[in-house]
Write a protein that binds this DNA or RNA. Structure first.
Length: 638
DNA sequence: GTAGGGTTAG
């Protein structure tokens, strides 16, 4: 124990007080130069740690001269204020000139996202090494400070140092986060220039960047060329395939990874679970779950939440709820996932009840929680509840509605036939409108056959997205229903003038633990011949039961007969025909579709559910449809 | 002795 001399104490006091402001800690180094020297003299006789206590009990600090002490102590900081306190101690000890200590200090500031403090320290440094630069570049990257990150990276290169396998992944990350493929390619050139393309960290970051920028082929090429593919690069690649809609390939890759002797971890399993969710394949989901239990992965918040989503998207609300109930730690994402699951299945009341449970357990809802709730209300016809939540969200929780929230409210009004209120809401909105918003209004006009508002909605939606064939189909359906055949023809004409972006539609289902995938007019399935024969019989059977093909769902400029042929080979119908061949009589059928089920297929499936006495569940891009005894409660179609 | 790539709800 050492009692301060008065002057030393004052010097320290200056440091202690000033370290509370961002730049002051470094500024404090200057006036402290002299007194610290005194302090050094005082304690020069002690090589070991010395505790200095002031006579004023307000200040009681331990000062150490050994850099190792701070390297050990800094990571234990629990707040930025603690870092600042240690910063002051380092300062009064004159240890700021030790770059190892200073870099760690810099890192601690960035880890608390105190980027201003970090930069103040960084810019005050007389000397910087590649560690300091990479911590600073990484700090900006993790904080989303794109411009500062690039600026610092440029400065670093200008200072004469070479970019390395630490700095580059940070810069690549920024390109990924901002979806800046062009900049990503520039960085890729730099990577090659410095011969770092084989580094695991750099390569994995590049693969991730390419995949998030939707150039999966480039990502795969890079991945295939990697000499050492570790767990993380595999995980990135698995996630990339799931993201681009090829979940089957993602799961295949997971198998391949294990065959190469790589042992998955929790994060890898989250990616596997996501792939199963995308596939909606119950068998795969169960296998993944069993694997997770067998290998004793901890069901942490992230993995647990992913599993809730997986089961919900496989059509198993009960399993999703079991996982939800078994989770000890739940965050707002977990609750929102479960609320979203109910919403997705058209179970508005359950979604709402869960929301109130969430509130009583003290979780604060966010923008996405409310989006799921509004979605639940719109698909369950709970107009008043939806409108109440829409105002609650803004007034009680300060969540500013984005265009997706508005879209739900338009849907809410629209489905219940309050079309002018929906239009009014859109017209009075101050935020930017998108095609989804107008599309919701257009969809509502189809349900209620409102031509006038439909034309208004169609004009706006086609202005924003002229290349989407779905909008023309909707408008044409509305005209057709009103018997306005000239306008149907005009719509088709309008469409043929556009370059249409066709997202290939596909449907798939799981039979005997295998995924069977179909696209329109598909003949690739090994049992294709049987499927088409079955479909022919089904069509005859259904026409007797009153099915009339709705060729308005096909908008190609072709004759009626050709339209019928296209219509009857829609992927949903092929999938249904296959299911009827390959599954036991009376068993429920579950089909997945990457786009929305078309109106004709919707009526087709409704009829199948009654003439074949089957429960048919269809998951499309929007929701789950439960067809039972000729009824689907979705309210999407007439 | 100080710096690094992958994860959950829409």
């Amino acid at each position: 124990m050492f009692k301060f001399k008065r002057q030393t104490f004052l010097a320290f006091k200056v440091g202690s007080i000033r370290l509370c402001s961002l730049t002051a800690a470094t500024a404090a180094a200057e006036p402290l130069a002299q007194p610290t020297h005194t302090l050094g003299e005082i304690i020069s006789g002690y090589n070991s740690d010395i505790e200095l206590t002031s006579s004023n009990t307000q200040f009681s600090h331990t000062l150490f001269l050994d850099p190792g002490f701070y390297l050990h102590k800094l990571p234990k900081s629990r707040s930025v204020n603690q870092v600042k306190e240690i910063h002051a101690q380092i300062t009064v000890n004159g240890l700021l000139k030790n770059l190892v200590v200073t870099n760690k200090l810099l890192y601690m500031y960035t880890s608390f996202r105190a980027i201003g403090d970090a930069f103040a320290l960084f810019s005050g440094l007389n000397e910087r090494d590649p560690f300091s630069w990479s911590v600073m570049i990484g700090g900006f990257a993790k904080n989303g400070d794109v411009l500062d990150c690039f600026r610092t990276f440029r400065e670093y290169i200008r200072s004469g140092d070479s970019p390395n396998n630490y700095t580059l992944p940070f810069v690549i990350r920024v390109c990924r986060d901002t979806n800046d493929l062009e900049m990503g390619k520039v960085i890729h050139h730099i990577v090659c220039k410095f011969g770092l393309q084989s580094d695991s960290f750099v390569a994995a970051a590049l693969v991730d960047m390419y995949s998030k920028c939707k150039v999966i082929e480039d990502a795969k090429k890079l991945f295939d060329r990697m000499p050492n593919r570790d767990l993380i690069s595999w995980t990135v690649m698995i996630g990339a395939y799931t993201e681009c809609g090829n979940a089957n390939e993602a799961l295949a890759l997971f198998e391949q990874m294990q065959a190469e002797g790589i042992v998955p971890d929790n994060v890898a399993m989250v990616n596997v679970v996501n792939a199963c969710a995308k596939l909606g394949a119950m068998h795969k989901a169960k296998l993944a779950h069993e694997y997770i239990l067998r290998k004793k992965f901890s069901l942490n918040v992230v993995l647990g939440t992913a599993m809730i989503d997986m089961y919900a998207k496989c059509g198993r609300l009960d399993c999703a709820r079991d996982i939800f109930d078994s989770m000890r730690m739940k965050n707002v994402v977990t609750w929102s996932a479960m609320i979203g699951a109910y919403a997705y299945h058209g179970r508005g009341m359950e979604a709402l009840n869960l929301f109130y449970m969430m509130l009583s357990s003290g979780i604060i809802p966010n923008s996405i929680t409310f989006l799921s709730l509004l979605y639940a209300c719109s698909h369950s016809g709970m107009v008043d509840d939806g409108l109440h939540l829409f105002s609650l969200m803004q007034e009680e929780y300060g969540v500013r509605p984005n265009v997706k929230h508005f879209t739900c409210v338009v849907d809410l009004y629209g489905r219940s036939g309050r079309l002018s209120e929906a239009l009014n809401l859109i017209e009075n909105m101050t935020i930017e409108k998108d095609e989804g918003l107008w599309g919701a209004l257009l969809g509502a006009c189809r349900i209620h056959g409102h031509v006038e508002i439909a034309e208004k909605a169609a004009r706006s939606v086609l202005e924003l997205q002229p290349e989407n064939p779905g909008h023309y189909v909707l408008l044409s359906n509305i005209y057709a229903r009103a018997g306005r055949w000239q306008d149907v023809a005009k719509t088709r004409e309008l469409m043929t003038h556009q370059r249409l972006k066709k997202v290939p539609g596909s449907s798939w289902l799981e039979v005997d633990n295998m995924i069977h995938k179909f696209s329109v007019g598909d003949h690739t399935h090994p049992r294709s011949k049987e499927i088409y024969e079955k479909l022919k019989l089904l069509l005859e059977e259904l026409e007797l039961a009153g099915y009339v093909p709705d060729t308005n769902c096909v908008l190609h400029d072709i004759d009626e007969e050709h339209k019928r042929r296209i219509l009857y080979t829609h992927s949903e119908k092929l999938a249904i025909a296959f299911a009827l061949i390959a599954t036991p009589e009376g068993a429920p059928i579950t089909i997945m579709k990457n786009l929305r089920v078309c109106g004709d297929c919707h009526s087709f499936i409704k009829l199948i559910s009654v003439v074949r006495k089957r429960l048919i569940i269809v998951r499309d891009a929007n929701r789950f449809h439960h067809f039972e005894e000729g009824v689907c409660s979705c309210g999407d179609y007439w």
